[in-house]
Amino acid sequence: MREPFEHVVAEHGETVWRVCRGLLPEHDAEDAWSETFLSALGAWDRFEGDRVRGWLVTIAHRKALDLLRASSRTLTPEEGVPDSPVPPRGRDLDLWAALARLPDGQRAAVVHHHIAGLPFDEVALVTGTSSVAARKAASDGVRRLRTLLVLEDA
């Protein structure tokens, strides 16, 4: 007995939005969100298992890569990426802008673990790395975010 797909949208729509927005600029994120749920809708009657969120995040991650590829940007390896300029002290950089300054691997790990709430073994499945590497990337990413974000009580 499979629940109506509308429940999936209601329950996970916001999470998928955060994933898309965490990986993409706003306009592309809107495309990625609808592409993700359109794909998921088409496959919902064949979906196996109970990790719906992980499944949706996997689709969203692929859609984000597709959109980046289509606009001839690529998710680049972390090494070789020059340090992003740190904004002037006191300037409130919002989360999405700060995430965009992370190397792609850290960005994906932070988004999938800290924003989507996936455990590291699922993050690893989504990004094609090991659980250990995903944990390290998320940890490095968060450390870097702290320097980028002006967090109250930080």
């Binding site: 007995m1 499979r2 109506p4 809708l41 919902w44």
Partner: peptide
């Protein structure tokens, strides 16, 4: 809605 999912299909929007 659940009955429709069971009897027609779960791809309900």
């Amino acid at each position: 809605l659940q009955s429709l999912a069971d009897r027609i299909g779960p791809r309900i929007l």
